[in-house]
Design a protein around this nucleic acid. Structure first.
Lengths: 184, 184
DNA sequence: TTGCGCATGTAACCAGTTACATGATTTC
DNA sequence: GAAATCATGTAACTGGTTACATGCGCAA
């Protein structure tokens, strides 16, 4: 199974929802809260080319009325399979500690790609991992606070706060899905 | 003024507090919440070499009693100047949107390197930028929530929650410095 | 007619990843 | 004496950054 970079999966996720040109992607990265990704053409176009070479997306040139030509990318079955495999991987502690951004990205397209049930399962697993990790951060703080420089300690507090916010969010999100299910 | 990568500044910050070997750094990245940085030798040793070539750190080989030799790095005046310049840069909205991790890193060594006053100034500026950005995220949510996929909307909510946590933290941190000042 | 937004791409460079390689010292 | 840990490094590869290059269509 082909694996991609984070950017690759972000692109795969985007084109899984709707066909997009490189320029569309550029606008998304430049103007929506999907920041963190570079909106430079030197990042986006080669990444799309790599995905196409790997058979995960395919493109066709369209010239629309009046406008100049655009190369529009859409996901292939193989691409969708790769996206789903990436999303469906179990969540490790390493993921939580070092790749939290990737986890959020995995979730961001999940409802469309894997459905509500798998999304809730992801959120529960995510909560579990967070619920294990947050106390570990507190312990670390307790053990080392005295030896740490002031701003280092504060920065760690910030990190703990962020992880706490993620945990709270995950619980709320599970509850949200619970309500939606009942409503049907 | 030499500029470095994020990793470069992280190393500079660490060796500004105490002399460290590459292996010490490796341990820090592997075992403390200073995660996000790779603890692989292929990242750390070349980065230290680059810093030395740029004159920002210097190293000497020490053989300690019984132990095998270690190459210990310490910061140079030029390195300290570079670190301070990086920390002291004004905080842009771009920083808040796309480089929030770098901002936290800038702060993490700030008290030692620039002192309490500059640290508080940084926190205030940080709070301001966040206080501008968080409402913008809420507006975006209000305007686009209906058109967004479920998990996309939830992921955005998570992002908003994280930024909110950072803002709360920054306010608390300013207050913390305020108390410390009074105590003296 | 100048300039901006749309739209796509390439090329040189650099830094980080992964994997490999080596050898000393300590611990079981 | 085997295994784990200490400790430092290199090399091939890959992907992202920065900068450059091009050209269309539209509006002032």
């Amino acid at each position: 199974m082909e694996t991609s970079s984070i950017l690759g999966y972000a692109l795969l996720g985007l084109v899984s929802q709707q066909p997009l040109s490189g320029y569309d992607v550029k606008k998304i990265f430049a103007t929506t809260p999907m920041a963190g990704f570079s909106d430079s053409p030197g990042a986006i176009y080669p990444a799309l080319q790599r995905l196409e070479k790997a058979g995960l997306v395919r493109s066709e040139v369209k010239q629309m009325a009046g406008l100049r030509q655009r190369r529009v990318f859409r996901i292939t079955p193989k691409g969708l399979a790769s996206l789903k495999a990436w999303m469906g991987k179990p969540i490790t502690e390493e993921d939580v500690v070092r790749r939290i951004g990737e986890l959020m990205l995995r979730f961001a397209f999940m409802d469309d790609a894997l459905g509500a049930e798998r999304s809730v399962a992801f959120l529960r697993e995510f909560s579990e991992r967070l619920a294990e990790y947050v106390p570990r951060l507190h312990e670390y703080m307790g053990a080392h606070a005295a030896a740490m420089p002031v701003s280092g300690r504060l920065a760690l507090e910030s990190g703990i706060g962020e992880y706490g916010a993620r945990l709270e969010w995950a619980k709320k999100a599970v509850a949200h899905y619970g309500r939606r299910k009942k409503e049907r």
